[in-house]
Design a protein around this nucleic acid. Structure first.
Lengths: 208, 208
DNA sequence: CTTAAAAATGAACATTGTTCAAGAAGAATC
DNA sequence: GATTCTTCTTGAACAATGTTCATTTTTAAG
């Protein structure tokens, strides 16, 4: 107890600054895009030295990855908050939640999917796993809607469906190449989910 | 005639080197990714000075955008080569051609979609238009398959379908976050197209 | 051949990620 | 509370890389 208490003094301060740095980096990415993130800007904003940023995150990628990690976490939290009572409504809810998150945090999501590691360093396993988990969230409701299908098949279907939704949203929100106008995106996305489900043999009224 | 002939001496040389520079840059991007592209490496490989690269492309973005422009062109050429006799086969052909191109030129395609301009400079209009044109290629066959639908509706449907295909492929080919295993991608993509068409009310046998 | 225009060059500069020796702050021991 | 040991912090210096521009070289015109 004593030890914990005594160590926590320094640790708390350390954690406090770490949090501050991540917060600042995230704000930079969110407002001006990943490319605008600069070590010196972050250090200045946090009123600490450049070295401290390195001390805390190892290198620049470390800081970016920390932000990205928290982005997946936030996304997952939001997706998991979608009610799971009705599978059909849940699927629509997931697509809509993804769209909502992507609209509000476009640059953060882009940072997650577009950031490339320096040289050939491997992408962190844990972030990979988290993204995969998020993408697997369509699995449960799809299993309920397609009880007769091979579960492995449904697993693939769910990831494909999520990938498709991801594609529609990420291109749709890209100001530059408007594949689908943002105003319509919401209803079109719902339509897409319905269409695809219909193709899978699920009619609008189906329920468990 | 004389003027053209005389001017072409210099111009031909200029064009020749421009082509060489683009070729080299493309090879760098294709093999090691956009992040590995360095002005000095390109200049060295072309046995010319750094200044010449700038003289030719204005800035670094200029070189990248030139490569990207040619990437869309190559993609479009490939997509347009898909036979248009049977609309159903054409849709599958387009998806498959996109997958083929993405497999063979993963880094080039990533460069096209992931590259962000310096500061807030606008993305070149012509590249935008070319990408949109490529994405519109699913329109014609879909119109034939859905003759009773509102054309505007079909236009949106086609861009959505292409966006979805893009999402499935780009995440599927991402070694890191394998949403769909690459070996299965081909058949799964075909299945996806079929499923979606079925949802739109097109049965496998439909033809014009 | 002379001269003017265009292009090529690469040293110098600006920005930005990274390192590290020196110093400051904190914890532990007496 | 002084001493010592550990850890953290700092920012100058370095390295990598995009960018500029005065100078030189090349090409075209007269």
């Amino acid at each position: 107890m004593n030890i914990v208490q005594e160590e926590s003094r320094r640790d708390r301060k350390k954690l406090q600054r770490r949090t501050l740095l991540v917060e600042i980096a995230r704000r930079f990415i969110a407002t001006k895009g990943l490319r605008s993130l600069k070590v010196r800007d972050v250090a200045d904003a946090a009123k600490c030295s450049i070295g401290s940023v390195y001390n805390e995150f190892g290198d620049f990628d470390g800081l970016i990855l920390t932000v990205n990690r928290e982005t997946v976490e936030a996304l997952t939290t939001r997706l998991k908050a979608v009610p799971a009572d009705d599978p059909l409504r849940q699927l629509h809810g997931l697509a809509d939640a993804y769209l909502g998150f992507a609209s509000e945090h476009a640059n953060l999501l882009r940072s997650l999917f577009e950031h490339r590691m320096e040289d050939d360093r491997p992408f962190p396993e844990d972030i990979l796993a988290m993204v995969m988990d998020a993408f697997a969230l369509m699995h449960a409701p799809l299993v309920r809607l397609l009880p007769d299908r091979d579960p492995d098949d449904v697993a693939l279907l769910s990831r494909m469906m999520f990938s498709a939704v991801h594609g529609i949203i990420s291109l749709g929100l890209e100001e530059r190449m408007v594949a689908v106008p943002p105003e319509m995106l919401r209803e079109r996305l719902a339509q897409f989910v319905d269409t695809h489900l219909a193709g899978l043999g699920v009619s609008r009224g189906d329920q468990v």
